[in-house]
Design a protein around this nucleic acid. Structure first.
Lengths: 340, 340
DNA sequence: TTGTATGCGTTATCAA
DNA sequence: TTGATAACGCATACAA
């Protein structure tokens, strides 16, 4: 059986409360007994029971994290950012994987609340319309921050998706591409909508025609989706000369299709993705991409949450959009220096 | 404040213990009152306090997982396997990232024990020599399973690294390569040692010479390491005509160096990695690889742990080695069909 | 400076 | 079939 406060108390002829106070290094305990206590604590390897402690203090030092899919590099990198910030403040993460399944998300949320986590960071599988979920949570008083998928009226941290779309599209235009198409994510996800909007804004600003047949809805995570979408685009009477893909997997699929169609990049065709996937630089043609600064999204979300936890200030919800960064590689780089 | 058992009891004019029994659907409660209780539980959204419950039942339904780096796809995929198995049995995962840092691993372990997790799955940052760590843990009575990094005298689940090395090397030999080199991981990690041993065994069996200058120690996770190691190999008087790389990142770095040196794959040079990384198929030359069956490693580890938790049978420790699978792609495929 | 008493929300034992 | 009572291990207000 594990060592308890009481065991130490008996051993040292002290009361439980004295030992407790000594362990917390409270001022009102004599240095002498504090030393005695700390010494036997170390010797016996005493470890406070977090359950008991949490029951009385109402704090568990645990933060719940809910994500749709841990095998996506986006979420693991965000998670790392969260972990950096929270572990420095002595929190541990209770991580749940919803597999993009809403009932499962509900169950996990319920479990986390049962565990009395001190706060929550959530990338929800729910569509933005289902906002009642989050107003419920808000009533429950527990601090929480949503990430990645935007919901109105909540604390939110994510990439600046419209800026991502805008910068990517503008970059293609600057490199001289004129018939710019977009292969996007599902319109049911806020990030996909944002990127599409940025794409449209960029086109409008430089007075390029926005053709509806140049916008194809696909799947963020499947290369095959990008491959098929690209084939659709190439079959048009006037095929595009560049594609802004809403994700790196889409871009990789599109690249495959473009190469098979005999296109030469970047001379005849430009391609840019989103995500700065580690292997983007090692592909047949290294692809340009928009870096979302994933770790920073995690860090900022954690900081907002920690603030919420400390100050309980449920002031007005704040939205943080992390600024993306353009990474230029061969797939769009038409500068003269890029000859080899 | 959250709803408590007592609130429901008062509301229904019942005792706390009756309500508790009703919620547990115990046999000795009348169906009528059970219905009444369950109804108000649903209405009020009552959620049992896991801290209080765990304090008395001594079970938390939480499993602690310790990994060195969540951003490596190996661990996230293993984690998914664990999650599949454990969430089906109503466990939640408390995931800790050690960043390959031993003091941090100690702290996280301590935290998890404080939280009274029901069991542990650990990929340790410690070197195999430091076995006292695990004998300590064994004394503490808590069920645990080690994964990926092998330690003697413990329950262990991992890939069959020797088989990985053996199969990869044999495959290269079958494709007609004769001067087969190996770029391995750090010899301080058990998986690297196993893969090296498999490589040597395969060479011995087919009576190929084992040259010490054909074995280069590198870093598992950095492409740059594979790149440099490959350059070293190419600078030899008799450079190898094939490389078994102990990881896909190493292979990718080596591929880069080989292509820059003007080698044509697979005609002049063969290359195989380990890990079945998602993008192995999309590289300049799609690379062959050994699939470790990561999710299965996680699933099996979880099953061993669940068994341990249920039966408390701390019988003799069992080691499970998951059989790898060879995946042939262009980088080694010299069959005639591979002409395009 | 230390000890006593009480309670956190739940389950379990045993009486009613 | 239900209810009173005592734990679980700890922290805290207050008394000594």
């Amino acid at each position: 059986m594990a060592i308890r406060l009481k065991d130490i108390a008996v051993l040292l002829n002290l009361s439980v409360s004295t030992v407790s106070a000594a362990i917390q290094s409270r001022e009102d305990i004599s240095p002498a007994t504090r030393e005695r206590v700390l010494k036997t604590v170390a010797e016996l390897g005493y470890r406070p029971n977090s359950l008991a402690r949490g029951l009385v203090t109402r704090r568990t030092q645990i933060i719940g994290v809910i994500v749709p899919d841990l095998s996506r590099s986006f979420f693991t990198e965000v998670l790392k950012g969260i972990d950096h910030a929270t572990s420095a403040a002595d929190y541990t993460l209770l991580v749940c994987n919803t597999e993009e399944d809403q009932p499962r998300e509900d169950r996990m949320l319920s479990t986390l609340l049962s565990q009395h986590v001190d706060g929550l960071i959530i990338a929800s599988a729910y569509k933005p319309a289902a906002k009642k979920v989050w107003s419920n949570l808000a009533k429950s008083q527990i601090p929480f921050v949503l990430i990645d998928r935007y919901f109105p009226q909540t604390n939110f941290v994510g990439g600046d998706d419209e800026m991502i779309g805008y910068m990517a599209t503008s970059h293609l235009a600057e490199q001289g591409f004129r018939r710019i198409a977009h292969i996007g994510g599902p319109h049911s996800i806020s990030t996909a909508v944002g990127r599409l909007r940025g794409y449209q804004r960029a086109l409008a600003q430089i007075r390029l025609q926005a053709r509806s047949d140049y916008v194809v809805e696909s799947n963020y995570h499947e290369e095959s989706g990008g491959y098929e979408a690209m084939q659709t685009l190439l079959a048009l009477r006037t095929p595009p000369d560049a594609v802004f893909a809403a994700s790196d997997p889409i871009a990789i699929g599109a690249l495959q299709a473009a190469l098979e169609a005999g296109l030469e990049l970047p001379r005849e065709f430009g391609l840019i993705g989103v995500g700065n996937h580690r292997y983007g630089a090692y592909l047949k043609i290294p692809i340009s991409t928009m870096d979302q600064k994933r770790a920073e999204i995690g860090r900022r979300a954690a900081h907002v949450l920690l603030e919420l936890i400390q100050r309980k200030s449920l002031s007005r919800p704040k939205s943080i959009l992390v600024e993306p960064k353009l990474i230029v590689r061969k797939s769009t780089d038409r500068r003269v220096s890029n000859v080899f």
